[in-house]
């Protein structure tokens, strides 16, 4: 998969992952607060933020694997940072990344419209929820509550990962920093036309 990637793209992906690994850890604290206020579902409200790097990396780089790799690397960096959940987080990251990647794969990595980005965020929600169901033992909760958690997470994935990811990427394109990436080039064309 990596053979077709330029080193430049790999490192930019990795840097995106590093920045968002830090953001993720900050949100873990916010999540814990919401958790304290609303119980488990508090986490699901902001769960989408933890998929955002998939959306941003895929939207900027537009290569097969961008969503999966960025989320996996972000998780690895969280582990390397030392204050995260430990090596199994890498598996969570991979699964979340796969969720988004699956949606991009369904478009053959060609379509990066708003709807696809939101769907990719939701894809991560679905995959991560299934995994969380197994590892975190949601089965101990009442079915109604679990269903509510699922839908909250789905919406969060669409909004906080899909929409916010698109919004941030486009803000970034405006700065000219993405001039050598597909999104930056697209932006430039739109400005000059």
């Amino acid at each position: 998969m990596l053979a077709k990637w330029k080193l430049r793209e790999v490192i930019v992906l990795s840097v995106l992952a590093v920045v968002f690994a830090v953001v993720y850890l900050l949100f873990l604290q916010l999540g814990t607060v919401l958790f304290g206020l609303f119980g488990l579902i508090g986490y699901d409200m902001i769960f989408g933020i933890w998929f955002i790097v998939s959306i941003i990396a895929a939207y900027i780089i537009r290569k097969p694997g961008a969503a999966f790799l960025s989320e996996t690397v972000a998780a690895t960096v969280e582990v390397m940072l030392g204050n995260a959940v430990g090596p199994q987080l890498i598996i969570s990251g991979m699964i979340q990344g796969l969720g988004a990647e699956a949606v991009f794969a369904a478009t053959k990595w060609k379509n990066y419209s708003t709807w696809v980005l939101m769907a990719a965020g939701m894809g991560s929600s679905v995959f991560s929820f299934a995994w969380g169901f197994y590892v975190s033992g949601f089965a101990a909760l009442s079915p109604g509550y679990v269903t509510a958690m699922f839908f909250v997470r789905l919406v969060s994935g669409a909004l906080l990962a899909g929409l916010l990811g698109k919004y941030l990427s486009e803000g970034l394109a405006k700065t000219g920093a993405l001039s050598s990436f597909p999104l930056g080039k697209e932006h430039k064309r739109n400005v000059t036309v």
């Binding site: 790999v10 490192i11 990795s14 953001v23 916010l164 941030l168 803000g171 970034l172 700065t175 920093a177």
Partner: peptide
């Protein structure tokens, strides 16, 4: 969030490209 993330990312991406080189 945007005010913080965008400058951080813009700077980081440019540096990343230089690092790759």
């Amino acid at each position: 969030i945007k005010r913080y993330v965008i400058p951080l990312l813009a700077g980081a991406i440019r540096k990343a490209e230089r690092t790759a080189l």
